[in-house]
């Protein structure tokens, strides 16, 4: 069987979620800042949900230490993460517009990098970088939505990972406390739960669902 046409895929999606939601998702642009355990899993979930434009940002290459939780194949070891993730997204959603920036996000470049995106996902791993991006986005882009994560290391219950709405446009996922620096490793299933919270927060924003509740 060959690659389905764009309209075949759109119809299959609309059969599941309706044309209105499918339209909202396909006209959205979402930035993934970081393509590790969080960002790679968020990207796949959003591609499957039919988000029309994904902006992938990471400076790193796929490493053997990533294989325990990140959505890459061993044949992609050594590749730039932005290119490897572009391949993986297009294998699922061939008509998704994938934009890549193989660069480290800094206070200096974040405004230029993120100006085109509607919703920004913070998916870094270092606490200081998370804080830098969150403060930078909230200070410089008051009109955009931000979905960040803090606390998903270790083997604690997956149920302790939650989504909280901090301001009208800032959502925070995670348990808030499980720090990888405390010696707890990152486990695929719990990182996936947190990434799932982030992806779901993005889709709820696009669907207008969060206007009805606190998270």
């Amino acid at each position: 069987m060959g690659v389905p046409t764009k309209s075949e895929l759109e119809e299959a999606l609309a059969e599941r979620i309706g044309w209105e939601l499918a339209g909202r998702f396909s006209s959205a642009s979402v930035a993934l800042c970081g393509l590790g355990g969080l960002g790679s899993n968020i990207a796949i979930a959003l591609a499957r949900a039919g988000v029309g434009r994904l902006h992938l940002i990471d400076f790193d290459r796929v490493d053997i230490s990533n294989m325990n939780r990140q959505q890459y194949a061993v044949r992609q070891l050594g590749m730039e993460k932005t290119q490897a993730m572009r391949e993986n997204i297009l294998a699922i959603a061939p008509y998704c517009e994938v934009v890549t920036d193989q660069v480290r996000v800094t206070e200096e470049n974040l405004e230029r990098l993120l100006k085109e995106d509607d919703i920004i996902c913070e998916a870094f791993d270092v606490a200081e970088n998370k804080a830098m991006l969150v403060n930078g986005v909230l200070e410089r882009f008051p009109e955009k939505y931000l979905v960040a994560a803090s606390g998903m290391a270790g083997f604690s219950s997956a149920n302790s990972i939650q989504t909280r709405r901090i301001t009208s446009r800032f959502f925070l996922c995670g348990d808030g406390v499980s720090d990888v620096e405390d010696g707890m490793g990152l486990v695929s299933s719990r990182v996936l739960v947190c990434a799932g919270h982030q992806a779901h927060a993005v889709l709820r924003i696009l669907a207008g669902e969060n206007d009805k509740s606190s998270s």
Partner: peptide, 10 residues
């Protein structure tokens, strides 16, 4: 006030 503390991991 809500003070949001970030911890490492991702």
């Amino acid at each position: 006030l809500e003070i949001v503390r970030f911890v490492g991991g991702g």
